[in-house]
């Protein structure tokens, strides 16, 4: 018997494609964010309200992932920005190859922001790097405050937690402070915004976060020669 060392990441093929994508996004100065949550936490609704708030001049596009149907893309196309549906067939997450394939005919120079809505799933999408600058996790107030502890991987890897459906707080026994404390036990630097897409409360905080993240992303890029 002979034991030989093996090196490298298990998902090295995905890691390779994701690294190529990340380099392209940096080259073309496109901020890419990857939205992840359980099914039904309000990713698509948050995107609808986000697109609705943008002026027609905003250079944004959306990739939305689901196992089946074009429903989400149809909901999001109404705002006039480029939207593509990725139907995975049965796969529980998006991977870097799917992103590469679906942006193939988009001119990245015409974009400042690409929002990826992952498949509704709090587990699997956390393992797959899509070349994004930031992962964002959504937690709705109808879920449990202990979700960050039950599904630590995605909370560990996300820069921002969006607490959604906050208009329901008077009606549900959800302790927002405890949920935030739990998220910060897993990820001490977790940023948090609270949003109700129904009343619009907190929407501006979310939009400000996106704007600031865009500035931070651009500031981190090497100076381009004029």
């Amino acid at each position: 018997m002979n034991r030989v060392p093996l090196e490298g990441k298990v998902l090295n093929e995905n890691a390779r494609v994701a690294a190529e994508l990340r380099e392209r996004f940096r080259e073309h100065r496109v901020l890419v964010v990857n939205l992840i949550s359980s099914p039904g936490s309000g990713k698509t609704t948050l995107l609808e309200k986000t697109l609705e708030s943008f002026s027609a001049a905003e250079r944004v596009s959306v990739l939305t992932g689901d196992l089946q149907t074009e429903n989400d893309a149809n909901r999001l196309k109404r705002y006039g920005f480029p939207v593509k549906q990725i139907t995975t067939g049965g796969t529980c997450h998006l991977d870097a190859r799917m992103i590469e394939k679906h942006i193939a005919d988009w001119d990245l120079d015409k974009l400042d922001l690409l929002i990826v809505e992952n498949v509704g799933n709090l587990v699997c999408p956390s393992s797959y790097d899509l070349g994004e600058a930031a992962k964002i996790v959504l937690l709705s107030v109808t879920e449990g405050e202990d979700k960050p502890l039950k599904y630590p991987s995605i909370f560990f890897k996300s820069e921002l937690m969006v607490l959604t459906k906050t208009d329901l707080l008077p009606y549900v026994p959800f302790d927002a402070a405890l949920a935030i404390e739990n998220a910060r036990r897993v990820h001490a630097e977790m940023e948090v915004v609270r949003v109700s897409c129904l009343t619009g409360h907190g929407m501006q905080d979310w939009l400000n976060w996106l704007e600031q993240r865009k500035h931070a992303f651009l500031a981190g890029l090497p100076e381009t020669v004029a």
């Binding site: 018997m1 034991r3 001490a188």
Partner: peptide
């Protein structure tokens, strides 16, 4: 005031082979 330094790795370690 601690920062996480590892915990999300998914790496190969070794392979045992027989001739």
């Amino acid at each position: 005031n601690a920062e996480c330094i590892s915990g999300d790795e998914m790496e190969f370690a070794y392979l045992e082979v027989e001739e």
